[in-house]
Write a protein that binds this DNA or RNA. Structure first.
Lengths: 329, 329
DNA sequence: AATAAAGATGGAATCGATTCCACATGACAT
DNA sequence: ATGTCATGTGGAATCGATTCCATCTTTATT
């Protein structure tokens, strides 16, 4: 392994000068600089980033904490994050909590000890140990998808999105509206989206029926089971539409309905959230909401870079969304 | 930031002893060890991994080079890789070449300078600069999905998989079999899958018709366009089935056929490869091949760990696959 | 009882960079 | 002629760990 010392020796200068030439810091004569650069190119020398990071306290690495790697949302966001970061010479260190709250905290500490320059976390819940860990880490952190108190956050407009979808369905005459949500642990997806549904029903004085509400866990299967349970518990009082808070659960629900011979949307309309690729190609095509995940990832990355460079213009933009009307409604 | 020196001072021992206590190396009395551990826990101290890596030449980080982050295949593989690696205390440093051959080379050098302990590359092509870069890096590298000469590789059984699918289609009577492939740049997906198709047709003395063959670029749209072009160029000589080498292209093809009023599989059968989630829920459900990507990622990771630990048992297992028969055929 | 071996600890070098400070040179102004 | 300043270069400290070697106890062995 060639080091800066080897280069210095070969160029017959001190390593100080080599460092200056490589980093464009301080004075280096044109002649010496060229000589050094030639040798660097020839040997293929690359400075040890461990050493550099040890000395400078910057690593050029951003830690990304995901709830689950293998989801469409995650990969879109990471894609967006990477767009921005790789252009700025940053690398991504990936961690996956597998929806385990304790791992979130663990990873924050681990990333810190790796001297990452910043952390981007896609949170699915809010809890005190997590907030404490972020405080303790004392490095730039941006949270995407959830509003974390005291942390720079970029949240989707979950309430309005859900409210719009609900309103749209009600306006289309689907007043017998069932709902498939997820656990309240998740303030954004679990609470806000449900609250908007409830509020809109209330606004029109429509009763909220417990047997029209079910809870899933993001998976297709859980959507299937949720739909099954809704149909079973409301035998004589069937809904005319179902709103699932994620596309995957909507797809599961649709699957069950198809199996049971329901025509969609004639017998039962379905809507989801997420604009997954699948939503477009499934039959009937699923009405859903596009959250622009990739753009959100880009924004979050830019926000984080801003914090790292101590820029103060933390433009607290709300993320936008778009309702996509398709055949399932 | 607390360092090992701070801990040493607080525990009133030398930093040597602290290091020993933390790494279970050498002798440390029970008494002193407990004292140190108590202080470590209390302060939340974590050793600087930059310093550690500088000294030990191991970083606990594996570089993963992907052709594209945001695909189902990539995310499944990364998921598998992460399964294995996170258990062994390794982290993943992610890079995305965006299908750019030059970036592959660049990233290998970059990862090397970051002292990653190994590199896992999902290659989509084989070229000399890439092989040279891998040689030059002189660190453990495992390639998944492609057979790289001189590099430990784990390749899917592309030829047999494609041959099986072709045979199955022919056996079902679809002897007028069209094909949507991708560029020959990619030996595995581009060449092997096509070769198997051609060989199987030849075996039965079926003619290979140019107007039944088209090339896409992995995307759904390209599958759509490929199907369109096949139909247009073979007006009076339509195929009875089409075999696309990826699910996404198969979905695109299906989309076009549906638009044109074809019944699937009555008027035209379709098959893909990849076992995407979508393939299961689309109507009609797509016949495809499951490559067990996540397991492949796990294998690749284990193989890499083996190389890192200088184990010689490089079991060159071929990856398996499974044909999934569904309604589209 | 003498000696060897095991147990416990610290000193100091080391990994490969950056950066502060000192010093040398030459140009220019006074 | 002298002082000032910009330019160019090197010496040495430093970042925070690990690890070799030396030293000192304590325990076991013959």
């Amino acid at each position: 392994m060639t080091t800066i010392n080897d280069i210095a020796k070969m160029a017959d200068v001190s390593r100080t000068t080599v460092s200056r030439a490589l980093n464009d810091s301080g004075y280096v004569s044109e002649e010496v600089r060229n000589k050094i650069m030639a040798i660097v190119k020839e040997t293929g020398y690359m400075p040890s980033l461990s050493a550099k990071s040890l000395r400078t306290k910057r690593s050029g690495v951003i830690g990304v904490i995901l709830p689950k790697i293998s989801t469409e949302t995650s990969s879109r966001v990471v894609n967006g994050v990477n767009d921005v970061l790789s252009n700025e010479g940053f690398q991504i260190l990936l961690t996956d909590t597998e929806l385990n709250k304790q791992k979130e905290v663990e990873y924050i500490r681990l990333l810190k000890s790796r001297h990452v320059d910043g952390i981007l976390i896609l949170a699915t819940n809010v809890n005190q140990p997590l907030l404490d860990a972020i405080q303790a880490a004392a490095i730039p952190v941006v949270c995407l998808g959830q509003k974390l108190p005291g942390v720079t956050s970029l949240a989707y407009n979950d309430y309005d999105a859900s409210a719009d979808m609900t309103t749209m369905l009600l306006n289309k005459g689907y007043t017998r509206l069932a709902f498939i949500g997820i656990s309240n642990d998740d303030p954004a997806v679990g609470q806000l989206r449900e609250q908007a549904y409830l509020d809109k029903l209330k606004e029109r004085n429509l009763p909220v029926k417990d047997h029209w509400m079910a809870v899933g866990d993001f998976s297709i299967d859980s959507g299937y089971e949720a739909m099954k349970s809704i149909l079973h518990t409301s035998k004589d009082d069937l809904p005319s539409a179902v709103f699932a808070v994620t596309d995957r659960m909507a797809v599961g629900a649709m699957e069950y309905l198809k199996e049971q011979g329901f025509r969609i949307p004639a017998d039962m309309a379905i809507a989801g959230i997420g604009a997954s690729v699948m939503s477009k190609y499934i039959t009937p095509a699923l009405t859903t909401i596009d959250y622009y995940n990739q753009e959100a990832g880009q924004h979050a990355a830019r926000l984080l870079l801003g914090k790292i460079n101590h820029e103060q213009n933390s433009e607290k933009l709300k993320l936008s969304y778009r309702l996509i009307l398709r055949d399932s409604v």
